[in-house]
Nucleic acid binder design. Structure first.
Lengths: 174, 174
DNA sequence: GGCTTGATGACAGTTGCTGACATCGAGGGT
DNA sequence: ACCCTCGATGTCAGCAACTGTCATCAAGCC
């Protein structure tokens, strides 16, 4: 992160990263599958929160409410590390390769939610739709949260996003 | 595509592709930014269809209906080349790097739709939400279409997806 | 003290991708 | 017909990401 911040992602070679960490290039690749993965190792935590959020929802709750709860649980992760999240996002938005990887991580979150919904008894294609729509709301809310100035928590943006999408799907014209 | 089909994506080197095409490796990279791009050059057509679908919708139509029309216009592209689409998708699902690039292309479609919606007068965050939700429906519909056996057009899956998402957002329990 | 085992180093090799310069063929102007 | 420009291609050298293989080494275990 230091090096990525100092000279940018592309201008940083793996050899430099390894040297700064007091290791060999080869050893770096034993810990991270590739150069990008350094920035995304933490996404496992997000997945856990989403999944346990879905598992923790009352069995009687409709899918969208379960998803809403899971998104709230995930949003809390960001509120705890607001500045770190912004710094990280600055590096990512500055580089196309990193944005690719971020999309992959989001897709894997969608898959995890989809499977957790299936376990709740939600059938296809509803499970896939609910998961993808949830991630869509998450993306928009995250972007707005990052660009926001105040101390507003990400959960508020999630709520707004859910309400907005609900209105849109009902034929609303905001 | 021949080589990717014969021996798989990773086992095919750019040198081989260039030789098969009667060109040099260097010339290959003058036409395609990278090795993956060969499979995604056609996505520009998809974007055009989506955008002109949005532009062509009656100004009075609510966002979700404009998106629905655009998705239908895009779906037609696939019905015309069903077998080709399947073959391509087989190559892509067999390789992680290619799935990454596919996600990038989908994200760029979402961005294009978002901007087209803004031009229709839809404001944020509704434009972003509608675009992302539309792509979510598209993803699920495409997956179901690829896995389907009959001659059913992709447009039918799009319609089902839209209806399903509408029901979900209204608190439905399918 | 010897043994296994997991992490690391050393090193060579492949391949995607880029920069710099030379070449060549098609049109365009005179 | 002659030259001239220009776009596409070839040639060559090189970097950096990533991988396979084997040696080394330290920690714990018998």
């Amino acid at each position: 992160m230091e090096l990525y911040g100092e000279r940018g992602y592309e201008q940083t070679t793996v050899t430099e990263i390894a040297k700064r960490a007091g290791l060999t290039e080869r050893t770096f690749f034993r810990h991270y599958a590739d150069k990008r993965e350094v920035l995304f190792a933490g996404s496992a935590l997000l997945r856990e929160r989403l999944v346990s959020g879905l598992e923790g929802a009352p069995p009687s709750a409709p899918p969208i409410e379960a998803v809403a709860g899971a998104l709230q649980a995930a949003a809390a992760v960001f509120d705890e590390r607001r500045e770190q999240a912004r710094q990280r996002q600055r590096v990512i938005t500055a580089n196309a390769e990193l944005q690719e990887r971020e999309l992959v991580k989001l897709a894997s979150l969608a898959t995890a939610m989809r499977e957790a919904l299936r376990l709740r008894g939600v059938s296809e294609p509803a499970a896939g739709l609910a998961a993808e729509a949830g991630i869509a709301v998450f993306k928009v809310a995250f972007e707005r949260w990052i660009d926001s100035v105040g101390e507003r928590g990400m959960g508020a943006f999630i709520l707004e996003g859910l309400a907005g999408l609900e209105s849109l799907m009902a034929g609303g014209r905001p």
